[in-house]
């Protein structure tokens, strides 16, 4: 499907979708609480079939966090970017690791570095940092006077 066709088709699936302009691919903001059902539909719907989640990341906007999911269909070769706004003090979103299994590691990384809690994740522990590490280093307000060198 082309980007234009995706833009027409998506609101049928997700009525509350808000598009963001610019960028190479269609970027859609979804409600964090509805993400799980949307993800299931995006994966299984005949017209979309987004079976390949190639990048999961989080961005700290100081007022809120944004989860960013990059999806591609290996059948139709169309791509989509899904974003979900999260509360910075209590970031919570449903896991999609049962839909795309690559998400298991990527979500653990986002939990490790941003503190996003993925509900119903099978094994939510720190991945890269030690278990007793304090704080979430990729947040903008993270301070470490010993190890961090500011340029």
């Amino acid at each position: 499907m082309t980007n234009e066709a995706l833009k027409i088709k998506l609101p049928e699936l997700i009525p509350s979708v808000v598009f963001e302009e610019g960028g190479e691919w269609i970027t859609a903001f979804v409600d964090a609480s509805a993400w799980k059902t949307i993800a299931q539909q995006l994966r299984s719907n005949e017209d979309f079939q987004f079976d390949y989640l190639f990048c999961v990341t989080c961005v700290d906007w100081k007022t809120h966090l944004t989860m960013v999911y990059h999806l591609t269909s290996t059948i139709y070769r169309h791509s989509l970017v899904i974003k979900a706004k999260l509360d910075r003090n209590n970031p919570e979103i449903e896991t999609v690791s049962d839909i795309w299994r690559t998400a298991e590691f990527h979500e653990r990384e986002a939990y490790d570095l941003f503190g996003v809690k993925f509900l119903h994740h099978p094994d939510l522990r720190r991945l890269l940092l030690t278990d007793d590490f304090d704080g979430y280093p990729l947040r903008k307000d993270f301070e470490d006077p010993i190890n961090m060198i500011k340029l």
């Binding site: 190639f54 990048c55 990341t57 961005v59 690559t102 590691f105 990527h106 990384e109």
Partner: peptide, 16 residues
């Protein structure tokens, strides 16, 4: 850059 993310191939391959 405000935020930069590297999607490294080894990371995903290792998860399998």
């Amino acid at each position: 850059p405000y935020r930069i993310k590297f999607r490294s191939p080894g990371f995903s391959n290792l998860s399998a």
